[in-house]
């Protein structure tokens, strides 16, 4: 079966800055594909090229079998887009915004009213249908923007950082909505810098760093690459006792300081906890906790890109 999105050697520069450098990928119909990378990695530029808001400098692009390389608008009827900012009209109500978006796709009045009401109900926004969009909370704005993105039942939905900057509860609801859309068969292209979110939702993931895709694979395969690793986190009460000494004393271990008084240890061999705890106690640290941790997608990301997951989380403000 032909892929629903096929990008070959896409390139895009802004002046001297190479935003996207020769990226290629294929996404199958119904897939939930994650595009993961730090801010400035080229995620939004890639989405803009895929949705017709940016023209590639080179490469080819097919959406639903339609060649969009030279005509960015050729396949816009197939796609829905939820940009990283909720860009609906503040002076229109929620219902009016959805009806207006439906009209942009040529839906007649009775169909767009019915569809808008249906979405407002299923997104828990029916009570706010007649309130102006400008008065919505950030979480409500995000949900309405997603509703606007799927008002015309697109085959492909592009979601750009859907949970960035919103509260934990709204982020959880949005993740549930995304999972439900995926279950109903919508192909979803999701960009995020929340690694946990990508791990929880996506089937396959591409890691993009500095405009280049450094790895594309299924979550399962990506996690296999760290399955043989042994990892543990140790916390102690006296943050003045430095974990760096431990790295010098045990050079076979990879030690990363997460916070003052908290380290993460990684090794290809089983880690002898007792020896490490004794060492830290001798260094003046009062060990509070030592726990084994399962390798996660974040560890895969760090292994592949060399970028710390913590720095990715910090870019988006409070992790949702």
């Amino acid at each position: 079966m032909a892929p629903i999105i096929e990008a070959n050697n896409l390139r895009k520069s802004f002046g001297d800055v190479e935003a996207v450098a020769d990226i290629s990928f294929r996404i199958e119909k119904g897939e939930l594909f994650g595009f993961l990378g730090p801010n400035g990695a080229g995620k939004t530029t890639t989405i803009k090229m895929l949705t017709g808001l940016a023209r590639p400098d080179g490469g080819t692009l097919y959406l639903g079998g339609i060649d969009c390389t030279d005509d960015p608008k050729a396949a816009q009827h197939l796609i829905g887009v939820v940009p990283d900012e909720s860009n609906l009209y503040p002076e229109l109500t929620g219902l009016e915004n959805l009806c207006f978006c439906a009209a942009l796709y040529g839906m007649d009045k009775s169909r767009r009213q019915a569809r808008a009401r249906e979405l407002l109900d299923s997104f828990g926004l029916a009570q706010a249908a007649d309130r102006k969009f400008g008065s919505y909370s950030k979480g409500m704005k995000r949900k309405l923007a997603i509703a606007a993105g799927i008002i015309h039942r697109p085959a492909i939905l592009f979601l750009d950082e859907p949970t960035t900057g919103i509260d934990v509860l709204s982020a959880r609801q949005i993740r549930q909505l995304i999972a439900e859309l995926h279950r109903l068969g919508t192909t979803i292209f999701l960009t995020t810098h929340y690694i946990e979110e990508a791990e929880r939702l996506c089937e396959r993931i591409a890691f993009i760093v500095s405009g280049r895709i450094v790895r594309i694979d299924s979550i399962e395969h990506l996690l296999q690459s760290v399955q043989g690793k042994h990892m543990m986190e140790i916390s102690w009460a006296n943050p003045l006792a430095h974990g760096e000494n431990l790295a010098q004393a045990f050079p076979e271990l990879t030690v990363e300081t997460l916070l003052p008084g908290t380290i993460r240890i990684e090794s290809d061999e089983p880690i002898h906890v007792g020896v490490l705890v004794r060492f830290l106690e001798e260094q003046g640290g009062h060990v509070l906790e030592a726990r084994r941790i399962q390798p996660s997608l974040e560890d895969v990301f760090i292994n592949i890109t060399g970028i710390k997951g913590e720095s990715m989380r910090n870019e988006g403000g409070r992790g949702a």
């Binding site: 608008k73 796609i79 900012e85 860009n87 978006c101 942009l104």
Partner: peptide, 15 residues
């Protein structure tokens, strides 16, 4: 400026 025009550019109608 407030990016609502982007929504119009994404609509499947000619410029």
């Amino acid at each position: 400026k407030n990016r609502t025009f982007e929504r119009l550019l994404l609509a499947p109608i000619s410029l």
